[in-house]
């Protein structure tokens, strides 16, 4: 089964760039496949730029409305995602537990719709 893992964290909860803690965290992201590749298969994944760069769009009565910022005002922001192929939810959860964001924020695990 395919699962989308979305990473949420409050920006101030994560180590700041330039600190040794930040480098250690990035090291963990880079070694994720090495550490967790036997649990599930990595299909794709990206980190996102900060929410200050986000624009939200919606269309109402044929008219496009754009807004500065993310759709929902929350403290924890979507920071990135992984798409993995895992045998079952237990494996997907184990993979998710290896992601540093699970420590600083949270990781939502959602099965992908199959058509």
């Amino acid at each position: 089964m395919k699962y989308l893992l979305t990473l949420y964290a409050a920006p101030d909860a994560e180590p700041a760039p330039g600190t040794p803690e930040f480098d250690a965290m990035m090291g963990e992201y880079f070694s994720l496949d090495q550490r967790a590749g036997h649990i599930a298969t990595f299909l794709s994944g990206e980190g996102l730029q900060g929410v200050e760069t986000a624009t939200t769009l919606r269309k109402r009565n044929g008219k496009v409305e754009t807004m500065d910022g993310p759709f929902a005002e929350t403290r924890e922001h979507l920071g990135g995602f992984y798409l993995i192929d895992a045998p079952d939810l237990d494996a997907a959860l184990r993979y998710a537990a290896e992601i540093p964001a699970a420590r600083y924020g949270s990781v939502e695990v959602r099965p992908v719709m199959e058509y």
Binding site: D88, R94, P111
Partner: peptide, 14 residues
Amino acid sequence: AGAGIPFAIPGPED
């Protein structure tokens, strides 16, 4: 069914 919760006895790590 939807989330793929396995019908299984968990392994030692879980």
